[in-house]
Design a protein around this nucleic acid. Structure first.
Length: 734
DNA sequence: TAGGGTTTT
């Protein structure tokens, strides 16, 4: 039929079962309270514990109560695309309709909705933020529910600020914010606009005659969850080496605790793989030693950590398991090849216990069934942003108590569980209560551009949930001015600024793509832009550095990573590309390339291609980079002129190939993953700099230093005479 | 000489 040929059979019993399940969810008792608040208040804050059913039920309640009248929809935003897709599928099933008809979803590259028919749409917060550019008052929606708002992602914080603005023009719009307890007051206070006058309603957003103006004092509903209790255990004294402590604790759990899988939180690939090896080796040795002792009649005296640990709650008496069960050890992190990830999700074989050693992916992004024990090192790699250097850092830091509680909750999904925190209870109390919102530790250039596009010229007076540091804001505006996206009055330029705002790319990369029209290499820059958007097209180097270096050298050119990407894509396309089946799969494997990354890069390239076509550029316009790589290099320099570095005098010294940042004078190094790692180009531009111990430049292109003042005269010519010259004062009059 | 936590448009 119209819905992709899927035949839907009405199954009365099945629907009865679903209806019964729905009414048994904890949130069902709050149905009327929620609907009353949404009816009478502009904003409702919903505090819903894990498993209460808020995400699947509330949109249905709203649709049932008539919030989709007049062809409007209920939107429910999610921070992650998989969540939007799977929740939509679940709700469609509950409503007995095919996915994409009454219930749909919208994520990047994929919208499964039927315009005019779909009532409930689950989308990523990023998609809804983008949608504002076409429909600044979100007129398609009667209610917007922002789910997981406590995570404080950049997109959801921005969305909440904008929704507050929209509410002043749309008294008919309702906002529901679903959040964890500790953040509820923050949201309720932010949306309390009792003293703020409404603005005149615009066009179709006007309130229907006779409709009631809602109170602008937010309502709060709290719904108990269905998670099981998790007993928390702390160390009696600090453990300085948390990887070792985590391994010892996991073995201890395996030796002495009842059934249930173990989830260990560590910070990154290296730690995770190291811990997995230690676990496998230790358990193998212990099993061997135990069988030896049994032969000689020795007691079961194994090195343990039990005595070092303070038991904070009544401990069930676990008879030591008589059978030494098998231990299945699985690493889990986002960069792991998909096949290996599947193992971590597969149930453990009978009589075996599974230990999943995971990064932060397991905190919110994925759920592993069967976990009853969590071991938490209480650290994570965290991103921060230093505006003065225009660089990001990715360093290990302690997590917040809120994050630790989220991690602990992973042990209580099926039955009461236990969480072992690898710190003392006193030290735990000293951790920050919550994570720093992403808004406060991000490069804001792209967001400022989007806000300008929405007509928000006075960025400083924008009502931020957490106002970002002034230095970060200034840096973003300075960059946008230098790129020509903002004029002397800090207004968005047209067409350049408008186009940069519409492109789903960082503005520097967007600029490089747009100027490629002048250089005649649009097709090439589409490829380069797409390739820089994926984590890495190369497979993880771990344990196979030599093979990876050799593979990369087959494509590498002296001009750097951008031109190398063109070689990779050309070869991948010759092998069949996305639709190449086994041939392109074999190509990727042979050349240590990640098929997943290549496919995603192709999707991004296609999307960017549509955007530039709309701007009137010819996406097929191409040069022959093998004959002349300079147009691509010049395009990169036109976008990334602010990210330039020159080889330091004696740059090839003991600490590697040092470069001096043209902007701040700081020392930079070429990332070992770059094809220019061993090269010594006099001058380079880079797409990003990340400090992971040293400051590394990623996606590096060698450029002629003469090009920089030529391609960015306003940025360079003045700067050379008088050092760091800021843009005219007018640019700061935002 | 030596390395990428996690999302998303």
């Amino acid at each position: 039929g119209a819905e992709g040929g899927r035949l839907v059979t009405y199954n009365r019993d099945e629907n009865l079962a679903l209806a019964a399940q729905r009414s048994r969810l904890p949130i069902f008792k709050c149905r009327d309270a929620i609907l009353f608040l949404v009816e009478t208040r502009a904003t409702t804050v919903l505090v819903g514990q894990t498993g209460c059913g808020k995400t699947t039920q509330v949109p249905q309640y709203l649709a049932e109560a008539g919030w989709c009248a007049g062809g409007r929809m209920v939107a429910c935003t999610q921070p992650r695309r998989v969540a939007a897709q799977t929740i939509a599928a679940r709700v469609a099933e509950e409503m007995g309709t095919p996915l994409g008809r009454d219930v749909g979803y919208a994520v990047r590259f994929e919208s499964v909705c039927t315009p005019g028919v779909t009532k409930i749409v689950f989308c990523t917060d990023g998609v809804l933020l983008r949608e504002l550019m076409d429909d600044p008052l979100l007129t398609k929606y009667g209610v917007v529910m922002v789910d997981e708002a406590h995570e404080r992602s950049l997109a959801s914080d921005a969305l909440l600020g904008l929704l507050k603005k929209i509410q002043r023009r749309r008294p008919d719009l309702r906002v529901v914010i679903a959040s964890a307890t500790i953040q509820a007051e923050t949201f309720a206070e932010f949306f309390d606009t009792r003293d703020v006058p409404l603005k005149p309603a615009l066009g179709p957003a006007a309130l229907a005659p006779g409709a009631r103006v809602p109170s602008r004092e937010p309502g709060i509903v709290s719904v108990e969850g269905r998670a099981h209790s998790v007993a928390i255990h702390y160390l009696a004294k600090p453990a300085p080496e948390y990887v070792k402590a985590a391994v010892a604790t996991a073995l201890d759990v395996h030796r002495s605790e009842g059934p249930g899988d173990v989830l260990v939180f560590l910070t990154g690939e290296d730690e995770i793989e190291e811990a997995c090896e230690m676990l496998r080796d230790a358990w193998e040795e212990e099993t061997r030693a135990a069988s030896g002792r049994r032969m000689s009649g020795a007691t079961n005296a194994l090195p343990g950590t039990t005595n070092e640990r303070e038991r904070t709650r009544g401990e069930p008496s676990n008879a030591s398991p008589g059978i030494r069960s098998r231990l299945v050890v699985c690493p889990l992190y986002a960069g792991l090849p998909p096949a290996a990830q599947t193992e971590a999700f597969a149930p453990a074989p009978r009589y075996a216990r599974k230990v999943v050693v995971a990064s932060n992916v397991a905190e919110t992004s994925v759920t592993i069934e069967g976990v009853a024990y969590v071991i938490d090192c209480l650290f994570a790699k965290k991103k921060s942003y230093d505006a003065s250097r225009g660089a990001e850092s990715l360093l290990v830091a302690p997590v917040s108590r809120a994050a630790a509680n989220q991690r602990a909750g992973r042990a209580g999904r099926l039955r009461p569980g236990k969480c072992f925190r690898l710190c003392t209870e006193l030290d735990f109390g000293r951790l920050p209560e919550q994570e720093t919102p992403e808004m406060l530790r991000s490069d804001l250039a792209s967001l400022v551009l989007q806000l300008k596009h929405l007509g928000i010229d006075n960025i400083v007076h924008f009502e931020w949930l957490s106002p970002p540091p002034a230095a970060n804001m200034l840096k973003a505006i300075e960059l946008l001015y230098a790129l020509g996206a903002l004029d002397d009055d800090a207004k968005l330029t047209s067409p350049l600024g408008v186009r940069l705002a519409e492109l789903p790319l960082e503005p520097q990369l967007g600029k490089a793509l747009l100027v490629s029209d002048d250089m005649g290499c649009v097709s090439e820059m589409l490829t380069v832009a797409a390739f820089t958007q994926v984590t890495s097209v190369w497979q993880s180097a771990r344990g196979r550095q030599k093979a990876l270096d050799e593979a990369r050298d087959r494509f590498a050119v002296a001009e750097g990573d951008a031109v190398t990407f063109l070689n990779v894509r050309a070869a991948w396309e010759r092998a069949g590309g996305v639709d190449g089946g086994g041939k392109s799969r074999a190509f990727a494997e042979k050349n240590m390339l990640s098929r997943r990354a290549l496919v995603r890069a192709s999707d991004i390239r296609e999307q960017l291609s549509k955007h530039v076509s709309r701007f009137g550029l010819n996406p097929s316009r191409s040069i022959a980079p093998a004959k002349d790589p300079d147009p691509v290099r010049r395009a990169m320099a036109s976008g990334f002129f602010a990210n330039a570095a020159t080889l330091a005098p004696h740059g090839g010294g003991a600490d590697g190939c040092a470069f001096r940042s043209v902007r701040g004078g700081g020392t930079l190094y070429v990332h070992p993953g770059s094809v220019l790692f061993r090269a010594r180009p006099a001058c380079v531009v880079y797409v990003s700099a990340v400090n992971t111990g040293k400051e590394y430049m990623r996606d590096v292109t060698s450029v002629d230093p003469e090009w920089l003042p030529e391609l960015a005269p306003h940025f360079y010519a003045k700067r050379n005479k008088s050092g760091a010259e800021p843009p005219p004062d007018a640019a700061f009059a935002f």
